[in-house]
């Protein structure tokens, strides 16, 4: 033992000397020695710049979307007056005589979005409340991965299900319904946006502080009263934001709607009829061999612009609400 500590003492002294030597070597703070040291700020600067470029690409993408959409749309609006585009009630750009009124497409889109919200909102909110307030941790651990799987199922699969599974059932109940109908699209899109509503709303419900629950229970409220009178109202704006995001997702939903809802632009609110949405129209034109630079080709940019603006506005509102919710409890 004595030996070892002696040994250590000697290493320590050696170390001390090394330290002294090192000191004299680097006594200046403006370290001059070594190529690496003089290159270091340059190297660091390069990396900083490269990462900055990566982050800026997101801005470029937004600019790119706007520029591409506007560039072709402006040329489209040379030929079709913007008023006619926004107020016309017939949409038939691919057939003579051509009509360029976007209202039927908009109507179809809103029909699907509204219908899917009617399907998804009650189930989604109920599930979110159950998972957040009632479910045991073990039950949550089982259900949440299942919801993740549901969220991960691609949209084209839901299109398949609408045609092969949902639509026959609807025709069984309502014999007047066509093979392609808005109702089957509403149902599958509703199922698609369910996981989104559930996970967002559940996060919001969970962020309601425990103290609020405790206070309500302390006043003698039962679980139902606490949930419905205290927690849900406290989380209401956030829940609304999650609905907005989900509806915006439904508006942008493409493959399922293209397959299920058909390709006949119609100004109708009857869910049993075949309709066409903005997204489905874009797919329809993309699939064909429309030559570049024609009026028909440009319609997809004009419709794309309308779609982009609609979803963007809803997203911005939702983000704004969510950012305010975040601040409130911090």
């Amino acid at each position: 033992m004595e030996d070892r500590s002696n040994q250590e003492q000697s290493t320590k002294i050696e170390g001390g000397e090394a330290a002294v030597i090192q000191l004299s070597r680097v006594s200046s703070l403006e370290k001059a020695g070594g190529l690496w040291c003089s290159l270091r700020p340059f190297y660091e600067g390069c990396i900083h710049f490269m990462l900055f470029v990566c982050a800026s690409i997101s801005i470029l993408v937004t600019v790119g979307i706007v520029v591409v959409l506007l560039y072709e749309s402006v040329q489209f609006f040379y030929d079709v007056p913007i008023l006619e585009f926004l107020t016309g009630t017939r949409w038939s750009p691919l057939l003579k005589p051509q009509h360029f009124g976007i209202l039927p497409l908009l109507c179809g889109t809103m029909l699907v979005a509204g219908g899917s919200a009617i399907v998804a909102v009650p189930i989604g909110l109920g599930t979110a409340i159950y998972l957040s307030e009632y479910a045991s941790p073990r039950f949550r651990d089982i259900v949440k991965p299942m919801l993740e799987i549901l969220a991960g199922i691609p949209s084209v699969v839901f299109g398949y299900l609408a045609i092969v599974f949902v639509s026959p059932i609807i025709r069984e109940i309502f014999p007047s319904a066509g093979v392609f109908n808005a109702a089957s699209a509403c149902i599958v899109v509703g199922i698609m946006i369910l996981p989104m509503i559930i996970s967002l709303s559940e996060d919001i419900l969970q962020s309601v502080p425990l103290s609020l629950r405790a206070a309500a229970f302390a006043l003698g409220a039962n679980k139902f009263e606490v949930t419905v009178r205290v927690i849900v109202p406290a989380a209401l704006s956030g829940i609304m934001a999650s609905f907005l995001l989900a509806i915006s997702r439904a508006i942008g939903e493409t493959m399922a709607v293209t397959l299920a809802a058909g390709a006949t632009p119609k100004l109708t609110l009857n869910p049993l009829e075949s309709i066409q949405t903005m997204t489905a129209y874009i797919v329809q034109v993309s699939q064909g061999d429309t030559p570049t630079g024609t009026l028909e080709y440009r319609t997809i940019f004009a419709v794309g612009l309308a779609l982009f603006i609609t979803t963007m506005v809803m997203n911005v509102i939702a983000q704004y609400i969510l950012s305010r919710v975040g601040e409130r409890y911090e």
Partner: peptide, 20 residues
Amino acid sequence: LLEGQNIYSPRTDIVSLRKR
């Protein structure tokens, strides 16, 4: 001043400062 050199001088290299 660290041994006569100003830590907050603009020429100070923060990395070598933190190593010392």
